[in-house]
Structures are given as structure tokens and as C-alpha cells.
Amino acid sequence: MNFWQFMLQNSGQVLEQTLEHLWLVGVSTVLAVLIGIPLGILITRLPKLNKPVLGAANVIQTIPSLALFGFLLPAPWIGTRADRLAILALTLYALLPMIRNTYVGIQGVDRAVVEAGRGMGMTDRQLLFQVELPLAIGVIIAGVRVATVISVGLATIAAAIGAGGLGEFIFRGLAMVNNAVILAGAIPAALLALAADFGFGWLEKRLQPS
């Protein structure tokens, strides 16, 4: 049976796994944005936290993904459900690009512009929301883009702990030594990654001022 035949006969399941994959990536990315961007902002305000926070995020990135899934297994509430566990792991991996790009983006805003704003009596809040974030948004979105693309790939491994997603086909295909089944997981995953890359790339250009 070749790839196309497999896809046609299992289109329902391919769709289901794709949606599951999207769910894992989507939820973890949203969580990483909600945690990572505020953390990135925080370390621009409290430079003392800069090294420990970026260092911790960096260390997480270096843990092999299978090992990270394993480490999280004993965690209460999280460890009891494979999808929660996968989402937590993916969130942790996505944190570094999110934090780092937010930090770098804000630090990269022209110092003279920030000083002018402060000198004219803007509060820290006003500076952040009216000046720093709008000017850093391109770099921040670039972080989301990188994180999402990495996440789409990593999420295939979530199938190893039974969290579903497109990795199901890949692992099954490997076990069956059947390339068609592997490709049924790998090709949609690659397309998702490309789509995310393209979509966020477009957004980055749209939102970047000047």
C-alpha cells in the first residue's frame, strides 16, 4: 500500500490526529506566550533576574525531549494524563525563544526614544504599552514563530507517551517498518510547520513598524 492509498483510506484518522496535534501545539504555545512574554518583560525591569531566568530556560532546552517527558511523569495531576504532560513539556520548550525574544526586542528599542518618553513624563506602564512593546513586536512574533515551528516537530514525540497527535503514525509506521504510514504522520506535520512559519512570518511583517 503506498502513501496516497493509505491517506485516502484513513483520511478520517489523519484529520483527527492532525487536529489533536494542533491542539497540543496550540495550547502549549498559548501558555508559553502567556508565561514567556511577561517573564521577558520582567527581566528588562529587573536586570538581576536576567541571568537566572534565561539560564533556566536555556537548561530546559538542553534536556532531550524524551527524557523531559519521562521526568514529568511523576508530577501530580499532570502525570496522570498524557496530553497534559505533553502540553507541559512543549510549553517548557517554547519558553526560551519567547522570553529571549521579548527581552532582546525591548532592549533593542532605540534608547533615545525611551529616554524621550520617560523625560516627558510617561509612566513605566505607558512606556511599555505605547512605546516598547509596539516597537519590539516584530522580534517578539519572531520568537513565537520559532517556538511554534519547533513545537510542531517536538509534538510528534508526544505520541511516545500516548498523547496522540501525528506522531502516532510515525511510531506505528516505524514499528510496522512501513514508510507510507510514517509519511502519513511526517508530511502533515511538515506542512503544519511550514504553515506556522509562513503565517507568523506574515504577521511579523505586518506588525513591524517602519
Binding site: 524621550a116 516627558m120 513624563g121 510617561m122 513598524p209
Partner: peptide, 19 residues
């Protein structure tokens, strides 16, 4: 903030908001 808002400031690098 009150102090700064009663003092107009023209900075050396101009520093207009580019956006």
C-alpha cells in the same frame, strides 16, 4: 511624572517615536 510634565524636553538625539 508631574515634575517631568511641567518640563518640556528636547533631547539631543531628537528621539521621535518612529511608530
Amino acid at each position: 511624572s508631574r515634575l517631568r510634565r511641567m518640563i518640556g524636553y528636547v533631547i539631543q538625539e531628537v528621539g521621535l517615536f518612529p511608530h
